[in-house]
């Protein structure tokens, strides 16, 4: 989680933080416009045996239409605009944790129609199911931290 090379917080680079805020804002806007903030619409995609709604697949495809060429171009640069280096996940091997974690995540996603982004973006709706989901999701993350992550 922590990287000694990280400078954005230490340097209090306001310009960089504003860009990060804007990307969060765009992300939340994209989830809202696409309808992915709505659990019923997400379930509509996952329910392949019902009235199938392919919208989620199109959201992913059009997101990837930007990130695939975008990431390709950016990762050819020496460094990002406001940091000393890129911070990319280091693990390359498939392990049982990856598979079991993804499987468990999918079960939760299917039960509620919510994944972390839309759940957080939806909290201002004050919907009781969204709020309970977010509280439990944070608890689940803490539980993982205390049970399985090494602390220094």
């Amino acid at each position: 989680m922590e990287d000694a090379n990280s400078t954005i917080d230490k340097a209090f680079n306001v310009k960089a933080l504003v860009w990060v805020f804007l990307s969060g804002l765009l992300f939340g806007l994209g989830l809202t416009i696409s309808g992915m903030i709505n659990p019923a619409k997400v379930i509509g995609f996952l329910d392949v045996a019902g009235n199938w709604d392919p919208s989620l697949a199109l959201v992913m495809a059009s997101g990837l239409a930007v990130t695939v060429p975008g990431f390709h171009f950016i990762l050819k640069q020496e460094r990002p605009l406001f940091e000393t280096k890129f911070f990319l996940p280091g693990k390359a091997d498939v392990d049982p944790r990856l598979i079991s974690g993804a499987a468990l995540f999918g079960i939760g996603w299917g039960l509620a129609g919510l994944c972390p982004g839309p759940a957080l973006a939806g909290i201002t709706s004050l919907d009781s199911s969204v709020l309970s989901f977010v509280a439990a999701m944070l608890a689940g993350m803490l539980l993982h931290y205390f049970l399985l992550e090494t602390r220094d």
Binding site: W19, V20, L22, L26, S55, A61, V66, T67, F71
Partner: peptide, 22 residues
């Protein structure tokens, strides 16, 4: 709306990598 929303999500992730490297 799915295509437009997806583009915004992709743009957000691209901006994050470009500016902040994450």
């Amino acid at each position: 709306s799915a295509a437009i929303g997806g583009l915004l999500i992709g743009l957000a992730a691209t901006l994050m990598l470009w500016t902040n490297g994450r």
